[in-house]
């Protein structure tokens, strides 16, 4: 069931802290992502973005704090349980099933959540179901046709049987995105999906993210491509040394002196 994009906080992070020995990777981080929006998360290297993604997806247990998915506490849930509740992610360093083809990668995602005995799955497998655009919130990819349609949607049409270990990085990132979308997530965490993409691929990615948000999905986007961020995000949060130092619209973030000092300033 898609969330109400206007009123629903799809993902909430409350007072989350993580320490690695004496290093404070995340220090009492609190923010939220609304359904139906693309939210950016930026910060210099080592700011704690990937650690935060690991906490959100369940790969890292926080020392303190809570994570809520659509108002439901998921802090102690295992990664696969979070995915089944509608939280998907991609990785900064590609985490593909390298021995499989692009389509098989997506299929593993779809099959993990699609219940084969469900009437809608049976109808679609028999080719009689109402065509749905797979990958949107609550619409996982059903069967081979669903997987093919999803690959088409991310711009990889016809690459169903292409082994992923031979794909260029940009396309491999899109396979990872398609695999995440295959579960029909309510919340999508993307860790630098634009790296390795050329300008036109990046533009297609931006359009897709806006489209997904339009369908009600909450997208949290870690990205270094500032043009992409400024174009698609309605809100951006900034992490520095594990602390959330700013949050606001792209314009506000661009004008924020603390952000310029910590991140944008050093990049210019």
């Amino acid at each position: 069931m898609p969330l109400d994009p206007i009123t629903h906080m799809a993902l909430e992070v409350r007072e989350v802290s993580v320490h690695f020995g004496g290093v404070r990777a995340l220090d009492s981080v609190t923010f939220g992502v609304m359904g139906g929006t693309v939210t950016g998360l930026i910060g210099p290297n080592g700011a704690g973005k990937t650690t935060l993604f690991n906490v959100l997806s369940g790969l890292q247990t926080p020392d303190q704090g809570r994570v809520l998915l659509a108002g439901r506490e998921i802090t102690r849930k295992k990664p696969h349980q979070r995915a089944q509740l509608g939280l998907a992610r991609t990785f900064q360093r590609l985490e593909l099933f390298w021995s499989l083809s692009a389509g098989e990668n997506v299929r593993v995602g779809a099959e993990a959540v699609v219940q084969w005995w469900h009437p809608s799955h049976i109808r679609q497998t028999l080719g009689r179901g109402t065509p749905v655009r797979p990958g949107g919130p609550g619409t996982p990819a059903h069967g081979s046709a669903g997987v093919a349609a999803l690959l088409e949607r991310v711009g990889l049409g016809g690459l169903d049987w292409e082994p992923v270990d031979g794909l260029p990085t940009g396309q491999a990132r899109l396979v990872e995105l398609a695999r995440a979308l295959a579960i029909g997530p309510q919340v999508l965490l993307l860790d630098e999906p634009g790296s390795g993409l050329d300008d036109s691929e990046s533009a297609v990615l931006g359009d897709l993210l806006v489209e997904l948000a339009g369908e009600g999905m909450a997208v949290l986007l870690v990205e270094h491509d500032m043009d992409l961020l400024m174009r698609v995000c309605s809100q951006i949060f900034v992490l520095d040394y594990g602390q959330l130092i700013a949050g606001g619209t792209p314009e506000e973030i661009r004008a924020n002196p603390a952000v310029q000092a910590a991140y944008l300033g050093s990049a210019q």
């Binding site: 997806s57 790969l59 995915a83 990785f91 099933f97 499989l100």
Partner: peptide, 17 residues
């Protein structure tokens, strides 16, 4: 497919459910 996925990346398996 799940077995091969498990071999290549258990973390990715878990994060797709």
């Amino acid at each position: 497919r799940r077995l091969v996925g498990l071999s290549d990346s258990p973390a990715a398996c878990a994060t797709v459910g």
